[in-house]
Nucleic acid binder design. Structure first.
Lengths: 138, 138
DNA sequence: TACTATTTGTTCGTATGTATA
DNA sequence: GTATACATACGAACAAATAGT
């Protein structure tokens, strides 16, 4: 359960696994705040650097959000809207660049959906709010 | 073009933008290696910590891959296979956990595609090798 | 309003380990 | 075996945002 210094796995990945399990197990609920970085470090006996790297992992997995001045918060999962794909339409998913994310107000750890329509047009959606489905047969 | 210490934007994000533009502009080609971290730091007059954080940004955007002992490499974009979606099928994209990525051999910065079929089955695909399309009308 | 304490964000330095060439 | 280069992990200092007094 705790941090094993003799383990080959890096400390920050071990800590990330511990925190991830706590989150998925419901020890921390969506919308709730995690303990402070110093607090987490004291509890597990690791430096702040390792705590921050562990939180980086969880943030890039889309599990938490962080803001300056306040502890990390478990991300809540909003309802998704599903975009219809016709047979010729093509959907690809990739991570947005930092500048695209800033411009489109996409949070860290959220993929970008690109829908290339048959007419050549391109639509982009944040993957935490949108998904895709096929066209229903009429 | 260079790093502006008076700019509000953090050094590592400025450096990430510079390197990203060099990559997209073709200064560095896909498959080619970037200069070493120390080299990049000397050229732009920043510490190795800032260089590593900039490379972290680019790695999580899916632009580069890094391996211990060798300089960062511009990622090449392989051909995508497109999975068909029927009307009732649902596709969502999210980032895999670090453990899922290890298990499925998904590289950093690559989203995971989850296809929830009408029969309740779940298929998962790495988003750098797979996309989605609708069912063609017969 | 203003001040203070807490907390996260950025940047530096140093040391050690490990993989590559 | 040596040199280069990336990965991990510690500490330290300061900036900036938050929250409570």
């Amino acid at each position: 359960m705790g941090i094993d210094r003799s383990d080959m796995l890096p400390v920050y990945l071990q800590l990330a696994s511990v925190l991830r399990q706590q989150i998925t197990a419901g020890v921390h609920r969506p919308g709730a705040a995690l303990p402070s970085e110093d607090g987490i470090g004291r509890v597990h006996g690791v430096g702040r650097m390792s705590v921050r790297r562990a939180l980086d992992v969880l943030r890039h997995e889309g599990l938490i959000t962080t803001e300056r001045g306040r502890p990390a918060v478990i991300r809540t999962h909003p309802e998704r809207t599903f975009v219809e794909l016709a047979g010729v339409d093509r959907l690809v998913a990739r991570m947005p660049t930092h500048e695209q994310a800033r411009h489109m107000r996409i949070q860290v750890g959220v993929p970008l959906l690109e829908v290339h329509r048959a007419d050549g047009s391109l639509e982009t959606y944040p993957a935490d709010l949108f998904g895709a489905c096929g066209t229903p047969r009429t």
